[in-house]
C-alpha cells in the first residue's frame, strides 16, 4: 500500500463530496455515512494508516486529515437537515449504532429465508403456537403410544379435553397440516413456514426449550427426491453465500417415508475443521417424502400425489451463518449480542 499523500487525501475528499451530492434521501445519506465516515468507512481506514507514515510527513497529514474530516462532517450535517434525518455522530470513529437500531439475528435469518423461498415459488404460511394433539401428533402419524408423546418432550397446557390435549407445538409440521386442511389446498402447492417451536429439553449451549423451525412442504404429481435436493442446495447456497452440495443419509420419522438426514458440504473449510469435526460435512436436519397416511389426513390422494417435507432449526442456520457458538445467546438478549446484527 503506497503511503497516503496530501493530494490523495484531497482527491478522496472531493470524491466523497461528489458522492454526497448524489444522495437522494435519508436512507441514501445513511449509506453514504457508513461508507465514508463510519467505523469501517473510507476516511477512518485511511486515517489509521497515518501512524505508518514517516515522521516528517505525519504531522502535516494529521492536520490535513482532521480538516478533511471536519469539512465532510459539516457537509453531512447540512445534508441531514435537508432530509430531515437524525444525524449520526460522525466525528471520530463514533460507533455507527448511534441511532440506527438492530433487528434480531433470528429475524434477519427468517427474512433471508423469506426472500430465497419466495424466489423459488414457495408461499409463506403461519400457524398457532398453541396446538392440540390432533394436529401436533395424530395427523402426523405419531400414534398415542409413540415416545414423542411422552410427558418429557412436549409441553402440555391445561384446559383441553383429555382426548385432544393442548400442547405447545413441537415442530412447525402442524402448520402444514392446518394450512392444507383449513384452506382445502389441493396439489400442486409449495409452502414454507418459519416459526417458534417448543421442546421440554434441558437448556445448554446447543439446546433450548424455545427455538424456531423452518418447515417446507411441496406436493404435486411428480415432486421427487431430486427436487428436494435441488431446493435445499439452493436454499443453503444462497443463505450462506457459497455453493453447497447436499448428501442424504437414511433416517426415520413417523411422518415421512423414505426419511433422510441431510448434510451439507462444510462452509468453513475444504477438508476438515472443528465445525464439521473433520468430516467435511455439516448436519443440517431431517426430511423425507411425505408419508401416505399424512397425505390422507390432509385429504390428498397418495396414489396420485407425492411430495417432500423438511423441518430445520433456524437457530442452527443462524449459528452457521454468523459463526455463533451458543444457542442461549439468541434468547439472552444481551445488548452486546443484539447490537452486532
Amino acid at each position: 500500500m503506497t503511503a497516503l499523500t496530501v493530494d490523495q487525501l484531497a482527491q478522496i475528499k472531493s470524491d466523497a463530496l461528489a458522492s454526497l451530492k448524489k444522495v437522494a434521501d435519508a436512507a441514501g445519506l445513511e449509506e453514504w455515512r457508513v461508507e465514508y465516515m463510519g467505523r469501517k468507512g473510507v476516511i477512518p481506514q485511511l486515517l489509521r494508516g497515518i501512524k505508518d507514515l514517516p515522521e516528517t510527513t505525519r504531522a502535516a497529514m494529521g492536520t490535513a486529515a482532521n480538516e478533511t474530516r471536519s469539512e465532510l462532517t459539516a457537509a453531512y450535517e447540512q445534508a441531514a437537515t435537508q432530509f430531515g434525518a437524525v444525524t449520526q455522530r460522525v466525528s471520530g470513529t463514533g460507533k455507527q449504532e448511534a441511532v440506527v437500531g438492530h433487528l434480531h439475528a433470528i429475524t434477519e435469518t427468517i427474512r433471508s429465508i423469506q426472500t430465497i423461498m419466495t424466489g423459488i415459488g414457495f408461499t409463506m404460511v403461519e400457524g398457532p403456537l398453541l396446538e392440540d394433539t390432533q394436529h401436533d401428533f395424530d395427523n402426523l402419524n405419531i400414534g398415542p403410544e409413540h415416545p414423542a408423546r411422552a410427558e418429557t418432550d412436549t409441553f402440555y397446557v391445561s384446559g383441553g379435553p383429555p382426548e385432544n390435549r393442548r400442547v405447545l407445538r413441537t415442530s412447525t409440521s402442524s402448520v402444514q397440516v392446518r394450512a392444507v386442511q383449513e384452506l382445502k389446498r389441493q396439489p400442486p402447492f409449495k409452502i414454507f413456514s418459519p416459526g417458534r417451536t417448543f421442546r421440554n429439553e434441558k437448556v445448554d449451549a446447543r439446546h433450548h426449550h424455545t427455538f424456531h423451525q423452518l418447515e417446507l412442504l411441496s406436493v404435486g404429481e411428480d415432486v421427487t427426491v431430486a427436487d428436494f435436493k435441488g431446493v435445499i442446495e439452493t436454499l443453503f447456497s444462497e443463505l450462506f453465500g457459497t455453493d453447497v452440495k447436499a448428501r442424504l443419509r437414511p433416517h426415520y420419522f413417523p411422518f415421512t417415508e423414505p426419511s433422510f438426514e441431510a448434510d451439507l458440504t462444510c462452509i468453513f473449510c475444504d477438508d476438515g475443521c472443528r465445525v464439521c469435526k473433520g468430516t467435511g460435512w455439516i448436519e443440517i436436519g431431517g426430511a423425507g417424502m411425505v408419508h401416505p397416511l399424512v397425505l390422507e389426513k390432509m385429504d390428498i390422494d397418495p396414489q396420485r400425489y407425492q411430495g417432500f417435507a423438511l423441518g430445520y432449526g433456524i437457530e442452527r442456520m443462524a449459528m452457521l451463518k454468523y459463526g455463533i457458538d451458543d444457542v442461549r445467546l439468541f434468547l439472552d438478549n444481551d445488548m452486546r449480542f443484539l447490537r452486532q446484527f
Binding site: G119, T123, M124, A226, R247, L248
Partner: peptide, 24 residues
C-alpha cells in the same frame, strides 16, 4: 429400494423461478 440404490446417486433438480411465492 432407494436406500440400497443410494440416495446420493440422485442428481438435484434446480427449482423453478417462474412463479414467485407470497408472504401473508
Amino acid at each position: 429400494v432407494l436406500r440400497l440404490v443410494g440416495y446420493n446417486t440422485i442428481e438435484p433438480v434446480a427449482p423453478s423461478r417462474e412463479k414467485l411465492g407470497t408472504i401473508p
